[in-house]
Design a protein around this nucleic acid. Structure first.
Length: 423
RNA sequence: GGAGAGAUACCCAAGUCGGCUGAAGGGGACGGUUUGCUAAACCGUUAGUAGGAGCAAUCCUAGCGAGGGUUCGAAUCCCUCUCUCUCCGCCA
């Protein structure tokens, strides 16, 4: 959510930022409604002051056994007016709020302006895609042949975009979760969180999934709960409506959760394999920082996520998203893309965003810069560290042998109970 | 699911019959006096927050779990909801 005060005092900055995302015309509507709200507010507050003063006077008169009928009648009139104005203010505020909740974040200065992913900028590459002496198979073929991925039974149990992991497939999934958690906890200094997978609506508004993207979410039947699309939601919302101490920042959290996405609008895309599932596992990094430190914390977070790919020996590249490809809440976002031999392309495996105070304002997460200072909004950041299903796909494809077996990356062997090959 | 109790400021807690109660009294924290130092004692300070007006000093509005209602006036009366706790039942 953008700051209405920023829009009020600096409308051109808001216009310029939103122009990069093609929604700048909303600024004038907002300014108009804001003015309307403040005019009415001033009027009604004066009336309320009058009511407070007169009511005390009534009390005094009654105590003195004097007649207060005239004042009481006068206040009845005033009350009618207050009620009317209060209603109007409430309506305007609701409009303003709904607009603010639907306006995307402003991109940072160094975000490339562009329409879509074609205008993303590659920042760096790591590792060399392996030269195969044979035709590399897609991970779903490898998985089925090794009897570790069962797409048909996933479909039988649940439907399309659900997969059953079996034997070393299940073990590999679990090994990756533990490997990533351990790395981030022990070497990168994150605190592990295991949050609920169902959250209430306030959380979803807080991180920006609602109100705009409800159709992407799974809603649960006894009303009021949503399945989380990412651990970002519960973990960022841990500190919703709180005021943190500056000395406790940055907060660095890592969480494994399952993630649930309706994938509305993705029909027909990535229908085979593990790339796009309704349910998938992810280890997520979340940071809450002061505004001054958020940019360097963002870079560090990207490095923490990259380290996972390095340890696993998976070639990847880091891409800075253009303004058009960035998510709704982000002010700046790097994607990590892993090499998938069967596709012959780099595919997104992690998305690392700085939201600045956009989510913090929605979720009302603040900190006190100095012991007695006014609270200010924190900056929130997060990134996958990494998406487990896509990592499994990448390992199967990059580490496959001609005979259809898959070598286990060295870093993972201890987590796989010592086995070095899936065959 | 059944029965009950509760939610007031940093914490505990009072709040009478609705009216100088935006909140008694403790504790804690902070400041001071005393002291060689510490402790003790004594004195003092201690809503935070959001919003609005103003160049500013400052003023105003909201706020006693949340949302409504009654009333000239609500922490106090009425309704709805949320959460916490106790007991019983059920359950991994």
């Amino acid at each position: 959510m953008l700051d209405i005060k920023l829009i009020r005092t600096n409308p051109d900055q808001a216009r310029a930022g939103l122009a990069k995302r093609g929604v700048e015309e909303l600024v004038d509507d907002l300014l108009h409604l804001d003015q309307e709200r403040r005019d009415r507010l001033t009027t009604v507050e004066n009336l309320k002051n009058k009511r407070n003063v007169v009511s005390k006077e009534v009390g005094r008169l009654k105590a003195a056994k004097s007649d207060a009928t005239e004042l009481i009648n006068e206040m009845k009139q005033v009350n009618e007016e207050i009620k009317k104005l209060d209603r109007e203010i409430k309506d305007v505020e609701e409009k303003i709020n709904n607009m603010l909740l639907s306006i995307p974040n402003l991109p940072q200065e160094d975000v490339p302006v562009g329409k879509d992913e074609k205008e993303n900028v590659e920042i760096r590459q790591w590792g060399k895609p392996r030269e195969f002496a044979f035709e590399p198979k897609p991970h779903w073929e490898l998985g089925e042949e090794l009897d570790i991925l069962d797409f048909d039974r996933g479909a039988k149990l649940s439907g399309a975009r659900f997969t059953v992991l079996k034997g070393f497939g299940a073990r590999l999934e679990r090994a990756l979760i533990n490997f990533m958690l351990d790395l981030h906890i022990n070497e990168h200094g994150y605190t592990e969180i295991f949050p609920p997978f169902l959250v209430n609506q306030e959380c979803m508004v807080g991180t920006g999934q609602l109100p705009k993207f409800e159709e992407d979410m799974f809603k649960v039947n006894p009303e009021g709960y949503f399945l989380i699309p990412t651990a970002e939601v519960p973990v960022t919302n841990l500190h919703r409506e709180e005021i943190l101490e500056a000395k406790d920042l940055p907060k660095k959290y890592v969480a494994y959760t399952a993630c649930f996405r309706a994938e509305a609008g993705a029909a027909g895309r990535d229908t085979r394999g593990l790339i796009r599932q309704h349910q998938f596992n992810k280890v997520e990094l979340v940071k809450l920082t002061t505004p001054e430190n958020s940019y360097q914390e963002h870079e560090a977070l990207v490095r923490d996520a990259e380290e996972v790919l390095k340890r696993l020996g998976l070639p990847y590249r880091t891409v800075l998203l253009s303004s058009g490809d960035m998510g709704f809440s982000a002010s700046k976002c790097y994607d990590l893309e892993v090499w998938l031999p069967s596709y012959g392309v780099y595919r997104e495996i992690s998305s690392c965003s700085n939201f600045e105070d956009f989510q913090a304002r929605r979720a009302n997460i603040r900190f006190r810069p100095e012991p007695d200072a006014k609270p200010d909004f924190v900056h929130t950041l997060n990134g996958s560290g990494l998406a487990i299903g896509r990592t499994v796909a990448a390992i199967l494809e990059n580490y496959q042998e001609e005979d259809g077996t898959v070598t286990i990356p060295e870093a993972l062997v201890p987590y796989m109970g010592g086995i070095t090959v899936i065959k």
